[in-house]
């Protein structure tokens, strides 16, 4: 059981604008996200990574408002956030346990060994916990990335492309883990695999060219599509419909 919160939404943005370099990559996004799994969809360059970086407070918004956990002081806030960057850089000489423990230390946690073990267990790497990272496969590295993000039992969990490099069985297991995490945290998952969203997300946020073009349930998104829209599944057709993709095979 979790204590009631003193804010309405874990993540609330109002006309948020964030720059990536000189380009305004997130251009006036108004969003509200509560507990659950939020799938962040959009074509490449839509501003997904920039939005997630702003939510992780490593990029300063250029304009607009961003309220995380009711506008908490930044250091306290960061203790309650888990973040998996798109390029998950790691130290090859570290073992899995050392790396996750290092991140737990950076998150100023107490009882680091136990929390580390728990996080490693949850991603199914207990048998490789004392192996060096350079001996792991790409999918396992991804899972270490997820382990370091959940080591502090975050209230806001930001995962940028977490399913890249996972094999189909691992992706199924990952969806289960997402559903589990979404029951008492606000999980934001950026992906371009529409079927991941259909399977594991309670809510879909669709970005295009820095603007919010859709927020609703996966069923709502499916409902947007019609037979003539391009895509292999109903939800993909919904995705194409919202983005207004032309039905011309061979075009990008």
């Amino acid at each position: 059981m979790t204590a009631p919160t003193t804010y309405a939404w874990e993540i609330a943005t109002e006309n948020l604008r964030v720059k990536a370099g000189r380009r305004m990559a997130v251009d006036g996004v108004t969003l509200k996200m509560g507990r659950g799994v939020h799938g962040l969809l959009g074509p490449n360059g839509a501003g997904k990574t920039t939005l997630i970086r702003a939510l992780a407070t490593v990029l300063e918004p250029a304009a607009g408002e961003l309220h995380l956990l009711g506008g908490m002081e930044s250091r306290e806030l960061r203790k309650r956030v888990g973040y998996l960057p798109q390029e998950f850089g790691h130290y090859k000489r570290f073992t899995v346990r050392e790396f996750v423990a290092y991140v737990a230390w950076l998150k100023e946690m107490r009882d680091i060994p136990a929390a580390t073990q728990r996080a490693i267990d949850r991603v199914g790497l207990a048998d490789r916990a004392d192996d060096r990272m350079k001996t792991l496969s790409g999918g396992m590295i991804r899972r270490v990335g997820i382990a370091q993000a959940i080591v502090n039992d975050p209230e806001i969990l930001l995962l940028d492309e977490p399913t890249a490099g996972l094999d189909p069985a691992q992706r199924l297991r990952f969806r289960e883990l997402l559903t589990e995490l979404g029951t008492d945290a606000c999980v934001v998952v950026s992906t371009h695999l529409v079927e991941d969203v259909a399977a594991a997300c309670t809510d879909v946020v669709l970005l295009s060219q820095g603007k919010l073009v859709f927020q609703g349930t996966p069923a709502d998104l499916t409902g947007q599509g019609a037979e003539h829209h391009p895509g292999d599944s109903p939800i993909e057709r919904g995705y194409s419909a919202v983005l207004g993709l032309p039905d011309r095979p061979g075009t990008w």
Binding site: V81, Y83, P85, F88, W105, L106, K107, E108
Partner: peptide, 9 residues
């Protein structure tokens, strides 16, 4: 990027 996002940064 991981380091910059933590409270200890």
């Amino acid at each position: 990027e991981l380091t910059a996002a933590t409270p200890r940064a």
